[in-house]
Amino acid sequence: MKNFFEGTLCGFLNGFFGSGGGVIAVPIFEREGCSPQEAHASSVAFIFMLSLVTAVFYGFSGALDFGAAWSFIPWGAAGAITGALFLKKIKAQWLKRLFGAIITAAAVRMLLS
């Protein structure tokens, strides 16, 4: 039962918010001894599995818009290939800070609106 509750936490948040399981899983995986790269890659495997479950349950409630998703998927696929190719090389620190700042600004705007 090792890692059962960590898994549950990731699964719950990823299902509840339809996103974000990875950002919880990565630090947990690093604490379990993964290198940063390994943690990022493993989180994708784990969240893929969780998202399959979530998609099925969203599907039951009729909350899935395949057309809307499809308009982003080819571009996303190009991004995924780029990202996966550079995962070994990227210097993530400045990227993380910048992304963190953008997300913080978006969050504040959402809370105030």
Binding site: G18, G20, V26, G79, K96
Partner: peptide, 17 residues
């Protein structure tokens, strides 16, 4: 939007946001 979401999502960095 699709591209950058894909880049970040492929690394588990919160692309979905």
């Amino acid at each position: 939007v699709g591209f950058f979401t894909g880049v970040l999502a492929s690394m588990g960095l919160g692309g979905g946001f």
